[in-house]
């Protein structure tokens, strides 16, 4: 939990890509954003090679850039596209750095990314998914991590619910959703699993970029105010954490504190979107 009124506020930071021609500059910007987020009391989250693009790992960035890593304030995302050796390296570095928060997802593959094999983790499966990886981490690194799983309400619901149950059986302890715009009927189901839930909020104004995620075309000119959506989600789900994807550090970050204070005041005065949580 962060210092933010008992509610986890997670700020996503995309790590520089391996192909970045201005790498030193990008690393410096990354470090500045990291420190701002940590100084503000939030949790920093770093995705693992999103969209299959080779990027640097959170753990190596922390070590190389000597980034502050207070307990409970860093979240590492880990997918199934690693060699066993690299996987162990990441997990062992996390332990050394005192990072417990671990979101495990199946992830996006790419030719350059090796796929973890069932035999690597002692499981008789044809393809390793987040379920097997959660099980492996919980078994081999028992007690070392708080392991979470992702829930995608835009997938066919029966399939996603069944998969979530398998993730929980494997040892998932918290849930992070895909971006929610205002509300989603599947949120009740997600909350019904009985685990802590973090709701993802899409912080770009370009809502149409979510078209692939939600499975239908969002017109490019769709009006969308990410800060208002964040406010609405926090009011609607006062016990859920929030995950800010692609938060703008130039235009949005400095407004967050005031927004959170406003949400706090309104919740204290009894104004919430839902009361059944």
């Amino acid at each position: 939990m962060t210092a933010n009124r008992g509610r986890t506020i997670e700020i996503e930071l995309l790590s520089p890509k391996q192909s970045d021609e201005k790498l030193e500059e990008s690393l410096e910007k990354f470090a500045v954003k990291w420190r701002r987020a940590i100084d503000a009391g939030y949790m920093v989250c770093v995705p693992d090679n999103p969209m299959g693009n080779l990027a640097f790992q959170c753990t190596e960035l922390i070590e190389e850039l000597a980034l502050p890593c207070p307990p409970g304030r860093v979240s590492v995302h880990l997918n199934t596209f690693h060699t066993k050796e690299d996987l162990d390296g990441i997990l062992e570095t996390m332990i050394r750095l005192g990072i417990r928060h671990l979101l495990i997802i199946s992830g996006d593959g790419a030719v350059r990314l090796p796929k973890l094999r069932g035999e690597d983790i002692g499981q008789d499966v044809e393809s390793v998914t987040s379920v097997e990886l959660i099980r492996h981490v919980r078994r081999e690194y028992a007690g070392c991590f708080d392991v979470g799983a992702a829930y995608n309400p835009y997938e066919p619901v029966e399939h996603e619910r069944e998969k979530m149950r398998r993730k929980i059986d494997a040892g998932a302890e918290f849930i992070i959703t895909q971006p929610i715009i205002a509300d989603h009927p599947e949120m009740d189901t997600i909350l019904g699993f009985g685990l802590p839930v973090t709701v993802e909020c899409w912080m770009s104004r370009k809502l149409h970029l979510l078209s692939d995620c939600v499975g239908y075309e969002i017109p490019e000119d769709t009006p969308y105010d990410p800060l208002e959506n964040l406010r609405a989600l926090m009011l609607r789900y006062p016990r859920c954490g929030v995950y800010l994807a692609i938060c703008g550090f130039k235009t949005q970050f400095h407004l967050l504190g005031e927004l959170f204070d406003d949400v706090e005041r309104r919740i204290a005065s009894g104004e919430t979107g839902k009361v059944n949580q």
């Binding site: 391996q18 790498l23 030193e24 080779l54 640097f56 790992q57 190596e60 960035l61 190389e64 060699t83 690299d86 350059r112 990314l113 090796p114």
Partner: peptide
Amino acid sequence: NQPRVPTLKRVLAAR
């Protein structure tokens, strides 16, 4: 083989 994914340390040294 499976080409390795370069580490940040190696990339910074190589640059």
